[in-house]
Design a protein around this nucleic acid. Structure first.
Length: 280
DNA sequence: TCGATTTGACCCAG
DNA sequence: CTGGGTCAAATCGA
């Protein structure tokens, strides 16, 4: 049974690789044509396809190693360098300018269309995050926290912003930027199994009321994994079509993955978390 | 000792 | 000019 699932995964990965390579060839052909007629849309489409392949392969690679990497299906044109902030400055250009002694805050603002937005009752998402900043936001009751992937030094450019909603509920508005290129899920497979640290975070969040966010939400890792259900940040209706999966760990969200993998053989391989998508 | 967090400073986009 | 996003020194804590 597991052999079948493993075999299917390999086949799937191989097929995706084939598809990606074919798409690249197609892209090269199209570019020749584009040079002629100036059409760009076809090339954009190809880039999107390539992005999808890359995402799928990333997820599957993680799966093949026994870990699910919930990289959201993106609409990024290029997963390699879609985040122009991290490409142009910031992460990739950590070296301060020689003349300027301090380049803190030097960055290019992210494009909002590169984001995916979630409203959840927990900030945990299966990844390990490091908090790198917190900011009081104008007219916002709660400060906004800024996280980057713990594996940033390995090239992972994923970022997220967390802000508690002001409606009195314990809901968090989380905005993700970029992709996880790491596989940090396996690093702390049991974290939050008893929700200890998370509870502290949520409690602090509740108690902090206005000022400080909890002292230690930064490393957010846990055993359960969020499936790729983030909504796109620029979707025209961010609230209405949100999923409300059941909260059963390892049960509720497997259907789509079972469609991909061989029936219930994949259930043992993946555990999903209870990410709740609620209306705001 | 080293990795994580805090927080004021800094820079850029609007 | 201001608000938002990021940096990095200081601090914390395991």
């Amino acid at each position: 049974m597991e052999e079948t699932a493993s075999s299917n995964k390999k086949i799937l990965i191989e097929e995706l690789i084939k598809g990606r390579d074919s798409t690249k060839k197609l892209q090269n052909l199209l570019r020749q044509k584009i040079d002629d007629d100036g059409s760009v849309s076809a090339d954009d489409l190809v880039m999107k396809i390539l992005g999808s392949f890359s995402d799928s392969l990333s997820v599957l690679s993680a799966c093949a190693s026994g870990v699910l990497c919930p990289i959201p299906v993106s609409k990024y044109v290029s997963s390699a360098c879609s985040d122009d902030r991290t490409c142009d400055s910031g992460e990739s250009e950590k070296k301060p300018a020689p003349v300027v002694k301090d380049r803190r805050g030097c960055y290019k603002r992210r494009k909002t269309e590169d984001s995916r937005v979630k409203v959840v009752d927990t900030i945990e998402d299966g990844y390990a995050w490091r908090k790198y900043g917190q900011k009081e936001i104008l007219n916002a009751k709660f400060p906004r926290c800024y996280f980057r992937c713990t594996h940033k030094n390995e090239g992972c450019k994923a970022l997220k912003q967390v802000q508690q909603l002001e409606d009195g509920s314990q809901m968090f508005h989380i905005t993700y930027f970029g992709h996880h290129t790491c596989q940090n899920l396996h690093k702390n497979p049991h974290m939050f199994s008893d929700s200890g640290a998370l509870s502290c975070f949520l409690l602090d969040f509740k108690n902090s009321n206005t000022n400080h966010l909890p002292s230690s939400p930064s490393t957010i890792t846990n055993a359960h994994i969020t499936p790729s259900l983030e909504q796109e940040g620029d979707s025209n209706n961010a609230q209405s079509d949100e999923h409300i999966p059941s909260n059963n760990y390892g049960q509720s969200s497997n259907a789509s993955w079972n469609d991909i993998f061989d029936n219930d053989s994949s259930i043992d391989d993946f555990k999903f978390d209870e990410s709740v998508y609620l209306q705001v």
